[in-house]
Amino acid sequence: MKKQVIIEGILLALLFLVTWIGLAQVDWLRILKVETVTSKTEKKLGDIFLETFKKSDQEINNLQVTRGIDSIVQHICHANGIDFNRIKTHVLLNDQVNAFALPDGHLVIYTGLISKVANQEELTGVICHEIAHIELHHVMKKLIKEIGLSVLISLGSGNASGEILRESTKLLSSSAYDRKLEKEADIKAVDYLIQAQINPDHFANFLDRLSENDDRMYAYLGWINTHPDAKERAKYITSYSHSKGNRYLKILSDTGWQALRDGALR
């Protein structure tokens, strides 16, 4: 009797597994149009959020700035097999030391960040961190987690209230991802930097410097406020990048970097 129960149980489990694995061979994501719905919503959300930021902060169209930033992003993308056209970079006139990713691959950099970094490698490190958030799909995950998929869909279809839009915009620019996602993005950023032959120590130095500086001037540091535990992060970035690369280069020439900074500060 016991043997019969075991045999029948195994057969039943096998029937379940065969049905499950068999059905998994069907491309449900395509049939249910999961990817299409998500990417359409993401595109609409990206446009809505970007417009909201552009209403309060003017976008810099100075060629010295946009060309410099594009060169950095293009170099990172090319070195890491990322589709450059997917990353849409925008430099906005704002004193906050901040950069953040929006849905649909929009990367926003404030002029405050460009003025506060010590060199182009530090800026490249922050850009890599934000590209990592985009590539790892952290932006939509954060939005879905914080405000819910249904609200996002209503926002994308233009049915949500202005208050929800304001809250969501604030969420994207001024609150952190959770620790696990931040670490993932940091580690990915270091990989991007090493592949692109950029010294990751500068990125760690940037975090370390900001975490130590308690000057009043730094009270307005958006990026560091939204990315807590900077000292700890600087440590694991240094530890992770240790002995990973030794031949480094500069993406922009000294004059190109200076032109970018001057353009952003003007």
């Binding site: 499950w20 694995i21 068999g22 059905l23 491309d27 449900w28 995950k141 879905i144 998929l149 996602l181």
Partner: peptide, 18 residues
């Protein structure tokens, strides 16, 4: 998937259907 950032895949939908 909704709260802990796991992604949708064909195995999930196949499991639901099964």
């Amino acid at each position: 998937i909704i709260f802990w950032e796991k992604s949708w895949d064909n195995y999930f939908f196949a499991y639901l259907l099964t």
